[in-house]
């Protein structure tokens, strides 16, 4: 529709993300400290329960758990937020013409920054209790692939939800079931018999979580061919999402009115 300058888009994203942070911070007394404190306390709780009390899953399982939870939380929180982005921005899009991918992008960026904070806490924890590996250099690659995957899922979900509100319940359920199927609470390795192991690896989030564990905890290389498959799938999803958003661009203000 109306052309937008790149600088306008940039300014919009910067302002929106920083405003989100500030409004979030204003809600609690401790403000943004919670963002570091919450993941830290959660990790501590898991460490105490699984590592010290139950002594489950053998040595180092607690690290697998921490990595799994952090990586999964980034994904699920992003999809959860992204699917509602356009609906939350309904007042905005009734007043001004906005390319509809923008509100989704802002929300995903917000969750990305949250993840980076969590990841920093996690890396410090791993470096002090476990050890640092050269394979950590794969981290930017893994983060990029996951970011693409999240972008794809977020755009598609966000594009569809305003038309099909019922989808919210389905997606929320999928995220819940997905948490158990993605190997957050268990490690997908030779202990799981075929064909189940291969089936589990068809899930992009299992591929990602396993790769993070490989490089961060075991110091081994990630499975690059599986990661490329995830990247390709993500790019397909991104194009699908953008196509849907473009197709229905001027319908959103009407269905949300």
């Amino acid at each position: 529709m109306q052309p937008y300058h790149l600088s306008t888009l940039k300014d919009f994203v910067i302002i929106s993300v920083s405003a989100l942070f500030r409004s979030e911070a204003a809600k609690n007394r401790l403000g943004l400290i919670w963002w570091v404190l919450e993941p830290f306390l959660m990790m501590l709780a898991f460490y105490v329960v699984f590592g010290l009390v139950l002594q489950r899953g053998g040595e180092g399982f607690v690290f697998d758990l921490l990595v799994g939870i952090s990586v999964w939380t980034w994904f699920s929180a992003s999809v959860d937020r992204g699917m509602m982005s356009i609906i939350r921005a309904s007042r905005l899009i009734q007043q001004v013409y906005v390319p509809k991918y923008l509100p989704i992008l802002v929300d995903l960026l917000f969750e990305f920054i949250k993840f980076i904070i969590v990841l920093t806490v996690l890396l410090i924890l791993l470096a002090t209790i476990n050890s640092v590996y050269l394979q950590w250099l794969f981290l930017p690659l893994l983060i990029s692939v996951q970011a693409l995957f999240i972008l794809g899922c977020g755009l598609v979900a966000g594009a569809m939800l305003p038309f099909l509100h019922d989808l919210k319940f389905v997606l929320t359920l999928c995220l819940r079931v997905g948490m158990f199927l993605s190997g957050v609470f268990f490690v997908v390795d030779e202990r799981i018999p075929e064909p189940y192991r291969d089936c589990l690896m068809l899930n992009p989030m299992t591929v990602l979580i396993t790769s993070y564990r490989n490089i961060l905890i075991d110091g081994s290389s990630p499975h690059l061919s599986s990661l490329s498959a995830v990247a390709v799938l993500s790019i397909v999803l991104i194009f699908l999402g953008l196509a849907l958003l473009r197709r229905f661009d001027c319908l959103y203000p009407r269905v949300l009115a």
Partner: peptide, 18 residues
């Protein structure tokens, strides 16, 4: 008030940029 959760000042910024 485009975003009810945000302050008036932030809403002015968002509006102005758009």
């Amino acid at each position: 008030g485009y975003y009810p959760e945000l302050s008036g000042r932030d809403n002015v910024l968002v509006a102005g940029v758009l």
